[in-house]
Amino acid sequence: MRLLLVEDERDLADTLASGLRREGYAVDVAYDGLSALTRLAAADADLVILDRDLPMLSGDAVCKTMRELQHPARILMLTAAGSLEDRVAGLDLGADDYLPKPFAYVELLARLRALARRTPRSPGIVLEAAGVRVDTVRRLAERDGRPLHLTPKELGVLETLLAARGGFVSVDELLAEIWPDSDERGRNVVKTAVHTLRGKLGAPDAIASAPGHGYRIEVGS
C-alpha cells in the first residue's frame, strides 16, 4: 500500500514515516503542499495523510485540487484545529477522514486501515506478489504457474493480503472483509483459513505474520 505523508513539521513527518514503513507501507514524504501535488503527479498513491496547515500551498488547496483532478487516493486530513466546523469543512473539501492533533499513533493506524479497506479495486485487476497471482475477475489463483485450488474464503483472504501491497492486514480486518455477515466470528476461523492457505501455497512460506499486526505478503519477496 503506497502512502504519501504531507507534513511540514519535519521531525514529526520523519518519525511517522519511519513508523509507517515498519508497518509495511511504502511511504513518500512531502513537506509542503506544492511538493505534494508534484509527487502525486509523478507516482501513484493509495492513501494520503494531509496536514491542513502547510507552506507553499495549503492542505485545503491540495485536497480540492486532488478531487478536481479525480485522484482516487483516500485522504486523511490532519489539523491542530479540531472543532466541529473545521472537521466539516475538511470533509466538504473532499477528505475521507479527519484526525485532530495531537493524536494517538494507534488511532492513526486504525484510521489508515479503515481507509485502505475503502480504497476501490480496479475491475479486472490481477494481483501478484511473491510468485502468487490472483485474477480477480476469473477468480483464479496460482503460484509460480501452479494452479491453486482454493475455497472462496481462502481466495478472499489471499486477494485481501495481495491487495494490501505489502501492508499488514489484521485478523479483525480479515473477519470484516471475508466474513462480514457470517456467524463465524471467532478469530480462530481466520487463523484456520490462513493455516490452510499456507499449506496450499507451499514453500517457501509466502505469508508473514506478526503478533498484534496480522498477516501480509511482502511485495518483492
Rank of each mutant, 00 (worst) to 15 (best):
S58N: 09
K200F: 00
L76V: 07
S122F: 15
G212S: 14
A89M: 03
D135V: 01
L161I: 04
D86R: 09
R10E: 14
D96V: 07
D53W: 13
D135H: 10
M66L: 15
G19R: 04
D14N: 11
L140R: 15
A206R: 10
T79K: 09
I75W: 00
L109G: 07
L148G: 02
G156D: 02
D135G: 05
R139W: 05
G33T: 02
L140E: 14
M56D: 15
G82M: 12
A176S: 10
I125M: 05
A41I: 11
R216L: 05
D53L: 09
E7A: 08
D14T: 12
L91Q: 03
R187L: 09
L108E: 12
P152N: 03
T38W: 13
G124S: 04
D46Y: 14
A116W: 00
D96Q: 07
F168C: 02
Y98M: 05
G202L: 07
I75T: 01
A42Q: 09
E107R: 06
P102V: 11
E85F: 06
P180Q: 05
T38N: 14
G145P: 09
L175C: 04
L78H: 02
S122I: 10
E142T: 05
D60L: 06
L112A: 03
I217S: 04
L57W: 08
V134K: 05
E142H: 06
T151Y: 06
S170N: 11
S209Y: 10
D97K: 03
Y25D: 07
V157A: 02
E159A: 05
A17M: 01
S58A: 06
P147C: 06
G166E: 08
P55W: 14
G82N: 11
L109T: 04
E173M: 09
L40A: 14
R22S: 10
E173H: 10
G199A: 02
D32Y: 07
T136Q: 08
F103H: 15
A193S: 08
H71I: 14
M56L: 15
L91M: 03
R133E: 08
K64V: 03
E142D: 12
M77S: 08
T119C: 04
M1I: 08
L54M: 12
A114H: 12
R146T: 13
G24C: 00
A73K: 14
A114Y: 07
A206E: 03
A45L: 13
G82D: 11
A17L: 00
R87G: 06
V169Y: 00
R22A: 13
